[in-house]
């Protein structure tokens, strides 16, 4: 058996967040995150990447709301493969801008995609083919990036198409509503490119609101969108997607995104924000304790 897949064997994969990140993510890895678009963004895992000082990562995702911006500002990232990087509620990502425009804290290579081409790149990897063809974005400057795109002729009709190169993440990190200890995961709500990324990646790490018995999973197998055979680690991380929403569990904490926008406007303010919310707190439990009870009550949904 390929040693890389040893951790996918049917076994208890529950780990603390710090161990899962330490075991599965290495400097220089390509990491897919924020795959559902604005929901289920694995902020707890992203913050642990920052806490462990991971370096030279390539981030992959359609959009990530502010998680990519935080990782870029913390100096973890050398390359981004994405369709959109910013703050959905507020607009531009200040750290993303500083990195691209001024090389602060370090230069950043950006490979622009559209949402469609990004999911096609992951789908190609998930299917084990080198590219998938599409008609999208012809005449757009996006497809001039030959790292990701080439013009090809349809072998049947000679029609001109764009080949989207497969993107194989070293690791996909996904936040889900529930999983069993073997990594069989139920997720619901809008799915974005989550399933494609899980099937595309070499390693998969889940953070979840609830760890459930196998019987809960097999009672609704159509909802098992990520089977445990793909998964290497399961982390019980309730509220692990805050401030993004989790259908059935948490509303979006819009104020938090707006406050981050202000506190990331200047480099020094961002570093103070990073210290306060990431590096000077030991773990997600401390993060949760730091959020006011009023905020948690306001965001909590009745379990659906």
């Amino acid at each position: 058996m390929n040693p890389i897949f040893e951790s996918k064997r049917r076994q208890n994969k529950l780990k603390p967040l710090s161990d899962a990140i330490g075991d599965l993510v290495h400097d220089g890895d390509a990491v897919a995150m924020g795959l559902c678009l604005e929901s289920l963004i694995p902020f707890a895992a992203g913050h642990e990447l920052i806490r462990q000082g991971k370096r030279s990562l390539t981030l992959i995702g359609p959009i990530s709301d502010i998680l990519f911006d935080q990782l870029i500002g913390a100096g973890c990232v050398s390359q981004v493969i994405a369709a959109w990087v910013g703050n959905v509620g507020a607009g531009l990502g200040h750290n993303f801008r500083r990195a691209i425009e001024d090389g602060i804290p370090q230069p950043l290579t950006m490979h622009d995609h559209s949402n469609f081409t990004l999911v096609l790149a992951l789908k190609a990897a998930a299917m084990g083919v080198p590219f998938l063809p599409t008609r999208t974005a012809s005449g757009s400057d996006i497809v001039k990036d030959e790292t990701s795109f080439r013009q090809v002729a349809c072998p049947f009709t000679s029609e001109r198409l764009t080949a989207v190169k497969a993107v194989v993440p070293d690791v996909a990190i996904l936040h889900v509503q529930r999983a069993d200890c073997f990594g069989n995961a139920h997720l619901w709500g809008n799915l974005g490119a989550a399933v494609e990324a899980a099937y595309a990646a070499e390693r998969v790490m889940l953070t979840c609101e609830e760890v459930v018995e196998r019987s809960v999973i097999v009672a609704d197998p159509n909802r098992t969108l990520i089977p445990g055979m793909l998964v290497d680690a399961v982390v019980h991380a309730p509220l692990g997607a805050h401030p993004s929403p989790v259908q059935g569990f948490w509303q979006r904490d819009g104020d938090s995104f707006l406050r981050y926008h202000e506190r990331s406007r200047k480099r020094d303010d961002f570093l103070a924000w990073r210290d306060e919310w990431i590096t000077e707190i030991p773990d997600r439990a401390a993060y949760r304790a730091k959020l006011e009870a009023e905020v948690l009550n306001r965001l909590a949904m009745r379990n659906a």
Binding site: P62, I63, A82, A83, W84, V85, G86, G91, L92, G93, F96, R97, I100, E101, M110, D112, H113, S114, N115, F116, R135, T136, A137, S138, S140, I142
Partner: peptide
Amino acid sequence: QGVRLPGSGGAADIASF
């Protein structure tokens, strides 16, 4: 004008199709 904006998202796809 030297400002890096967030990017396409799905806009290029909508505009194409």
